[in-house]
Design a protein around this nucleic acid. Structure first.
Lengths: 348, 348
DNA sequence: TTGAAAGCGCTAACAA
DNA sequence: TTGTTAGCGCTTTCAA
């Protein structure tokens, strides 16, 4: 690799002059500069970024932490998040260092290597956990960071984050169903230990309250975020909630499972059963029939995370550091509540 | 951040001794070492990785280049690839620097910053292009690299790669259909300009030849890798190929589109029409009915890419540098060729 | 307008 | 067993 020293040898100017000529300082003779620039091009000079980092005590790098193995259900999420982050970071000449290790012992090790080892100027955390030890560590290390997703409503969320406004999204979806005439609407939530579960619960309750429909705990279940969970909940609804005509599911896989379970019992989705999903990935779109869905703008979350983090890194923190992005309700099937279904359910 | 100098001040030993004590050299008095280790723990010492990198002229970092915008159809692919790469790299204490910029002018800029700027020890290229300028650059810079996916069969593939053996995969799938009794089998390929298209074409032709079934060019179409393309091809097959009973699609989205188009024309998938997909993402599994699919082991590709690259970086290149991973045929629906369909197609 | 010197934090050759 | 010194490639005083 060509170094400043090589250019110095070639042109006869000192390393200092070369550095300043290439950096665009105006205390360099224009003729000298041209000569140096030409030499740099001829020799294919690229500054050694590592040396720059050491000197500047800045890395022009954003760290991205994604615990992986515990999220088999969110395939596609990272693709989009990464695109958003990569684009926004690149536009500001930042690179992205990803730590994608499975959660476990090693995870914290590579984590500390990145943070304590000065490999990044700031971090994006892709999932928070309850009382996250990583956040405590970042605080102590005074490392700037932003989080994708906030803590549960009953926990303190005293860090900068960007999240999708899932409460409003679920409320919107539920209100949509109510407007179509549905009054007995099931809700399939994520497991209770997940931070965002309660927001979705509240969105559902809000919509019912606004319409004057009483909240019925029998219409609210927790699923496992996979198809099997959605199917189990739907079967349970069918068996216990006779008047139910619509179900809101907290993610697409559960919506798909619910759909298939209902179809297995003879329901026609879009005719005598309405199902709404919540989009991590575009599965709802590919279902048959396509399902109505609440879409999360994941690419935008990625972009906005960078746009939130960079000012913090550069020492001019923005006022607004907790941002909720709107979701979008994509209606793919409008199914009213006029169920024509009567009598017993088919057994399969 | 605590530096060696701080530990030196605290313990009274020289920076050199501290460095060697922590590095585990055995020419350090054991008592001294204990004292130093304790101090390091108390002060939360983490070595500055950037300084190490500059000193060692090695970064312990793998670069991953993923052009993003031109692949809207492969959502989920990088999720899995990244997991495989992240796990394997982390196990060898390597970090991963990702360049996820959209293809374009800036792309080459951030690319050169990473490669020429000594930010990585080696690179993984996630998609090759025809006569890829990035590969030429890497060669000139003598930067170790491996590629996910090989060049088309008629282009020279003179670089280390790992690819899925799509030729064998498609052959396997086609043979499977033939074994079920199908003789008129459609093939929906990716666009001809994509490097791997021809491999899939050959796999199909191989299976026909092995079974003594004549190749019919009317049964081979190119789709756009999206649902619309699969649907268009299926409609074309239905209109022009009366005896067709099965279709092999080059990816899952097209398989899904083909399925929906066939269902729209009154076919019952798994009864009078068999469809096989090729798995970038698990859509086939979620189809209704679930489709038979050729599954790509993408996580493994990620792992193996790292396992191929690291020895090259460390100067002990393996003999085998061009690796084809087997696909897996997942049969979800066994549909024989005994179509009961007669007469006209329904118009919708 | 240019150059000499210092130093970012670390490791390693060499000396004591 | 420990310390002194040099240097990785760069930027930035400061002096000429």
């Amino acid at each position: 690799m060509t170094r400043l020293k090589d250019l110095s040898l070639k042109t006869g100017f000192s390393i200092t002059t070369i550095s300043r000529a290439l950096a665009g300082y105006d205390d360099v003779n224009e003729q000298t500069r041209q000569q140096i620039i030409r030499a740099a091009q001829e020799m294919g000079y690229q500054p050694n970024e590592v040396a720059r980092q050491l000197r500047a005590q800045r890395t022009q790098t954003i760290g991205l932490i994604i615990p992986t193995h515990d999220q088999p259900f969110s395939e596609g999420f990272f693709d989009q998040l990464m695109r958003g982050i990569g684009d926004a970071a690149g536009e500001s000449r930042f690179d992205v260092l990803v730590s994608a290790r499975a959660a476990g012992d090693d995870e914290m090790e590579s984590y500390k290597r990145i943070v304590g080892g000065n490999r990044v100027d700031g971090l994006i955390l892709a999932r928070t956990r309850h009382h996250d030890e990583r956040i405590a560590y970042l605080r102590k290390a005074k490392m700037p960071f932003v989080v994708s997703g906030r803590a549960a409503p009953d926990e303190a969320t005293d860090f900068p984050f960007i999240d999708v406004d899932s409460q409003a999204g679920i409320q919107h979806a539920t209100a949509h169903l109510i407007a179509l005439g549905h009054t007995r609407i099931g809700l399939v939530l994520p497991p209770p230990e997940i931070a965002y579960t309660e927001f979705r619960h509240r969105g559902y309750a809000d919509a019912l309250a606004a319409a004057g429909i009483p909240y019925d705990a029998g219409l609210v279940l927790h699923g496992d975020l996979m198809r099997s969970g959605g199917a189990a909940c739907m079967r349970h609804f069918i068996e216990t909630q006779a008047g139910l005509t619509a179900v809101v599911c907290s993610n697409d896989l559960m919506a798909l499972g619910a759909m298939q379970a209902a179809q297995g019992r003879g329901y026609r989705i879009g005719h005598d059963m309405a199902i709404v999903g919540f989009d991590d990935l575009p599965i709802s779109e590919h279902a048959n029939p396509p399902l109505t869905t609440v879409r999360q703008p994941i690419y935008d979350i990625g972009r906005r995370l960078v746009e939130l983090l960079l000012p913090i890194i550069l020492g001019r923190p923005p006022q607004e550091t907790q941002i909720l992005l709107p979701t979008q309700l994509i209606v793919r099937e409008s199914c009213g509540a006029s169920s024509s279904r009567k009598g017993d359910w088919p057994s399969a």
